[in-house]
Structures are given as structure tokens and as C-alpha cells.
Amino acid sequence: MEKKIEILAYHGWGFDASFWDAWKELLPTDIVFKTANRGYFDKAFHPRFEADTKFRVVFLHSFGLHWCNSGILSKADVMVIFNGFGDFLPDAENLKTVAERGLEGMIDQFPKKPQQVLDRFYGSAFAPNSTGRVPSGSPNKVPLYEDLQALRSTRFPMIDLDFGSTMIALDGDRDKVLLQPRGADIIAPHYWTKHSKVFEGVGHALPITKTQDCWSYLCSLIPIFERYENNR
């Protein structure tokens, strides 16, 4: 192939690098795919782009947008934001009240019943699907709890990271975690190429419940993805 593609992938709250296992099986083998790890269940890992990489891509799911290093984002040719949010609490007062009540309940219960809080979160994240891949092993309660608390006030001003990369925001219309699609609003201030799509009948775990659909859509937008797919 004429260019080396590298994708760095960042999972959201409550998950780990295994969140992206379906993508490892799906992507053409010529694409370098590295999965970051926040450290919720095992050791944290923060990948870097190789110096000779010609086309750099970042996959960001949910809170992954917030813990990915800005230096990585600044190098990306394409940013793909799955189920992303700038502020976790929505602007609409009726939705904000619901989200705030749910978040505070999780924060209150987590120190006492962390696995129960995680299990309820997974149920919401995978809905309307009944189940999905979840991390194995014991949770590291400190980073999970700290990031959960951070959701009270976390903000992501996309306009401050307007580096010229193509930005793609993908959402599900039945997201029980965010309550409404946010992707188009996140990338609205971006001055360069941007695309957004809301998948019907899909929830917060969009990239692992509709992996093939997401990849097909990305191939339709990014010519080099399509070439790699067609030259397997």
C-alpha cells in the first residue's frame, strides 16, 4: 500500500482496551491498530503514533475523547468520535435533571458497590441490546471513581483543538447514557471537513454493537480506508 495507516483507539468510562476487540478482527491487517487503556481494570497504556506513519487516525468512544492526550489529537488526520459529548450533562433542563440524578446516584453508590454500579452502567450502555463484551478482572476503583466524579464538570471545547483534521461524529439514536445524540454539536465549531451520522436503533455502545456498519460508513467517507478494504 502507498501509505501506512495507524489508528489509536480510546475507550470510554467503565471499559478497557478489549472494548475494541471486534475492530481488531474486522480491520484490514495492513492497518496498524493500537488500543489505549485508561487503567480501570489493568495497567494503563497510552500509545503513540509511529514516526513513519503517513495517515493518523484516532477513535474516541464517549469519555475517551476527554482522556486522550491533546498532543495525540493534534497529530490526527482523522478524528472519529463515537457517542461523544462535550459536557456530560445535557443542556436541556429536563434531560439535565435526569442525567444529573443518575450520575449522582452512581457516585454515591460506587464506593460501596462498585461492581453493581458497573453492571447497571453496562446494561444502559448496551441497550437496546441485551448484552455485550465487558472487561474481565477486578475493577481499579480509584481511577473509575475519580473519572466518574469528573463527569460532573468535564468539558471539551472542540474549538480549542481545531487542528485541521477531518472530524467524524457517530451516534446512536437510543443512547440511554447520553440521552440524546451529541456528536453533531461537538464538531459544529470545527472549520474544516466534518461529518456526522446518527444510527437508528443503536445505543451508547455503537462501535461494538454496529462495528461493520460504522466501518462501512467510514470507508464511504475516507478514500484511503476504502482502498485498504478493497485490497485485502
Rank of each mutant, 00 (worst) to 15 (best):
F82D: 07
N83E: 15
H61S: 07
P135H: 04
Y122Q: 06
Q109F: 01
G137N: 01
V58L: 15
E93F: 08
G86W: 02
K34Y: 03
S18W: 00
D30C: 05
F126S: 04
K43A: 14
I31F: 08
L60M: 13
A127Q: 01
L60E: 10
W23V: 11
G105W: 03
G64I: 10
V32T: 14
A17F: 01
V98F: 11
A36M: 10
W20S: 07
F126N: 03
Y10A: 11
M79K: 13
D52Q: 13
F88E: 09
S70R: 12
E25D: 14
K96R: 15
A76K: 04
V80T: 09
D42S: 12
V134C: 11
L95W: 01
A127S: 15
L8F: 07
F49N: 10
P128G: 04
P143G: 10
T97N: 09
L73I: 12
G64A: 07
A36G: 06
V32L: 11
I31C: 10
V80A: 06
E146T: 12
G64Q: 06
L27E: 10
C68S: 14
R133Y: 04
R56E: 09
S62A: 12
S74H: 03
Y40W: 14
Y10T: 04
F15S: 08
I81R: 12
N69D: 15
G39E: 00
W67S: 05
G132V: 03
D119H: 06
N37K: 03
L144N: 08
M79H: 06
R133C: 02
F19M: 12
N83D: 12
A99L: 02
F121D: 08
L27V: 09
Y40A: 00
T35M: 15
F110Y: 15
P28D: 02
G14P: 13
V117T: 15
F85A: 04
F63R: 11
L95T: 02
A17W: 03
R101A: 13
F82L: 06
S124V: 01
F41P: 04
S130R: 15
P114Q: 10
F55D: 02
V134L: 08
M79A: 11
L26W: 06
W13F: 07
F45Y: 15
M106Q: 14
G64V: 05
S62G: 09
F82W: 12
R133M: 12
D91Q: 13
S62Y: 08
W67R: 07
F121C: 09
K75H: 08
D30P: 01
D91G: 00
D108W: 03
F49T: 07
V80C: 06
E104M: 14
W20N: 07
L118H: 05
G71W: 02
D91R: 10
A76D: 11
T53I: 11
Y145F: 15
L95P: 01
R120D: 12
S130V: 05
T131P: 00
I7E: 04
G12N: 13
G64H: 10
S124G: 00
F59Q: 07
G105E: 11
V80G: 09
W23K: 10
L65I: 12
D77S: 14
R101K: 13
V98W: 03
F63E: 05
A9W: 04
V80D: 05
D52A: 14
A99F: 11
F59W: 07
F15A: 11
P139N: 03
A92L: 09
P135E: 08
P28F: 11
I81S: 03
W23S: 06
A9R: 07
D42M: 00
M79G: 01
V32G: 04
D77E: 08
K96T: 00
L8V: 09
N129Q: 14
